[in-house]
C-alpha cells in the first residue's frame, strides 16, 4: 500500500471516528435556513406531483404544455432551495474557519507583536521565507512574524 493510499485510508477512518464520536455537533445551518429549504422542497414536490397529475388528465399535448412548464418550475424551486442550502452552509463554514484562525492566532500569541512571537531563541520567520531572522531584521519589515527555532538556515543580513 502506498503512503498516499495509507494516508487517505487513515484520513477516512479519522473522519468516520469523528462522526461517530461527535454525532450531535452543531450544524452549519441555522433553524431558519432549515425551515426555508424544507419549505422549498415541499413546494417543489407539490408542484411536480400537481404537474404530473395535470398532464396525465389531458389528452391534447397542447394542453399539457402548461403542466410541463409547471414541472420545470418545480425543478427551479428545488434548485433554488439547494443553492440556498449550500450557500448558507459555505458561508457558515467560512465564518467558523475565521474563528478558528483567530483562536490559533491568540493561542500562539501572534496578536501581541513581533517580540512576543519570537521563540525562546528570539528568532522569527514569515510566510514565504526560508531562513530564520532576528525580529528587527530588515527582511522581516512589513511581514507577519512566525516563531521559529533553529531548524531554518540563518539569515545573511541579520546574521541570526
Amino acid at each position: 500500500m502506498t503512503a498516499a493510499v495509507a494516508a487517505s485510508v487513515d484520513s477516512s477512518h479519522a473522519l468516520t471516528r469523528e462522526r461517530r464520536d461527535h454525532p450531535s455537533l452543531d450544524i452549519p445551518w441555522p433553524y431558519a435556513t432549515v425551515l426555508v429549504v424544507a419549505g422549498f422542497l415541499v413546494v417543489a414536490v407539490a408542484l411536480l406531483v400537481t404537474a404530473w397529475g395535470g398532464a396525465s388528465r389531458q389528452a391534447d399535448p397542447r394542453d399539457q404544455v402548461l403542466w410541463l412548464n409547471l414541472a420545470v418550475l418545480a425543478v427551479s424551486v428545488l434548485g433554488a432551495g439547494c443553492a440556498v442550502w449550500l450557500l448558507v452552509g459555505r458561508r457558515s463554514v467560512t465564518a467558523r474557519s475565521r474563528q478558528a484562525q483567530q483562536a490559533i492566532v491568540l493561542a500562539l500569541g501572534l496578536d501581541r507583536g513581533p517580540d512576543a512571537v519570537a521563540s525562546a531563541t528570539g528568532l522569527v520567520t514569515a510566510a514565504g521565507l526560508t531562513r530564520r531572522h532576528h525580529v528587527d531584521c530588515p527582511l522581516m519589515s512589513g511581514r507577519s512574524p512566525l516563531p521559529t527555532g533553529g531548524e531554518l538556515d540563518s539569515c545573511g543580513v541579520c546574521g541570526s
Binding site: 469523528e18 462522526r19 461527535h22 455537533l25 452543531d26 450544524i27 452549519p28 452552509g89 457558515s92 463554514v93 467558523r96 474557519s97 474563528q99 478558528a100 483562536a103 490559533i104 491568540l106 493561542a107 500562539l108 500569541g109 501581541r112 517580540d115 512576543a116 512571537v117 519570537a118 521563540s119 525562546a120 528570539g122 512566525l146 516563531p147 521559529t148
Partner: peptide, 25 residues
C-alpha cells in the same frame, strides 16, 4: 464544520501564552 469545531475547541483549551514570555510554538 465538524473538523473546524474540534480544532477551535482544542485550541481554546490550550494554556494561554503568558505576558511577554517567549512563545514555544
Amino acid at each position: 464544520w465538524r473538523k473546524l469545531h474540534l480544532l477551535e475547541q482544542a485550541v481554546r483549551e490550550l494554556p494561554a501564552p503568558t505576558g511577554s514570555a517567549a512563545v514555544d510554538r
